[in-house]
Design a protein around this nucleic acid. Structure first.
Lengths: 193, 193
DNA sequence: CGATTCTTTGAAAACAGTCAATCTGTGTGG
DNA sequence: CCACACAGATTGACTGTTTTCAAAGAATCG
């Protein structure tokens, strides 16, 4: 798993062999069964997670039992609850594997040490956070200004890879519509083209 | 205006007198009339903006003419279009003063130099981006999982200061509901308590 | 195969949007 | 001081969309 991470990160950031070995020395490898949770809502999220295989989701459950997906993380992407990780507060999210997955974990402290030592890694994380902000802003715009159909369009455009891998009711939960509504949208979508 | 910025930033970041003078030397001060725009949708956003007095909004206009507010920036907060600023691409947002305002501006290049030189400033911006991500995530959750009424509640809780200063139809535009709906919500709100 | 899980469908109800009109307060110019 | 225009807020009636509830059909996992 770390090997997959290594080839990914080498392509993304300018790291020496030494940097890689440093990261490896504190990395934790883990295999997740389908439906296994890495963090449960209410727990403290202790790791920053890189997915080398499979697919995770981070979702919040409301008092009424409804679930809202904040984030999908397929292979070669990251997951965590940044707020819980940074502050040690209980997480609002459950992070669950949707497929059998392989992940690499780092604790907050190790990560702080790594980003403090490896400037290339810090620069990479900065880029990552910046890109995350952009996609959150796009999502806010999409979600406050669009009909359910436009949101679905948007999702198809921006997350075609995810669309093919997750049950529809999770797409619905990501978009903030019911599964029934999404189902009807798709029908008219197919009819319309 | 830079003086107001100075006292704010000194409280937020660990900066030497020298750092401050460096920032001052490239800062641009500007006064904005009510309704004056600093960036227009389609323009490139050339500055990072600190508001020392007044209130700005950043909003996107859709093809159908509807406006969606991404961000309010009262005094002692920042505004910009990060994507446009970083990439030099046309901005999706118009940044407009809602009140007579005073702002301090830095160009991308000056900013890059400043953050590269002043580590305390870099650390402060990192914190800022991190906090911005958190609030965007909260907003996404609020907006995909709540009725119009709950969104309004949320806004009241998190932005009481803004609520008192902007016309209601802008709150509506921030929340993604029509002004009529918001008006009706407020009525039931008052009746209910 | 049997049991889940996922998806679709229908009908009714709740919700939010649209259109049009009115009301309010503010500020301007005669 | 008044008349007027203007921007904002509210209301009513209507329309359209989305949710809810209930059921059934399809696909998938063990």
């Amino acid at each position: 798993m770390f090997n997959e991470f290594e080839s990914y990160i080498r392509a993304q950031a300018n790291l020496s062999d030494n940097d890689i070995e440093l990261m490896r020395s504190v990395a934790i490898e883990k295999t997740l069964r389908r439906k296994e949770c890495l963090v449960r809502q209410g727990d403290v999220c202790r790791y920053k997670i890189f997915v080398t295989k499979g697919l995770l989701r981070a979702y919040a459950t409301r008092d009424d039992g409804s679930e809202h997906i904040m984030h999908f993380s397929p292979e070669n992407s990251w997951s965590t609850d940044p707020e819980s990780l940074a502050n040690g507060t209980p997480s609002n999210y459950t992070i669950e594997a949707l497929e059998r997955s392989e992940v690499v974990l780092w604790t907050k402290n190790d990560l702080r040490y790594l980003t403090g030592t490896i400037t290339g890694l810090k620069a990479y994380f900065d880029k990552l956070i910046y890109a995350g902000g952009n996609s959150l802003r796009h999502r806010v715009l999409s979600v406050i200004g669009s009909t359910a159909e436009e949101k679905y369009d948007d999702f198809r455009k921006n997350h075609a890879d995810i669309l093919a891998r997750v049950p529809l009711h999770m797409v619905a939960s990501y978009l903030g519509v019911t599964r029934e509504t999404l189902s009807r949208i798709r029908r008219s979508y197919i009819a319309g083209k």
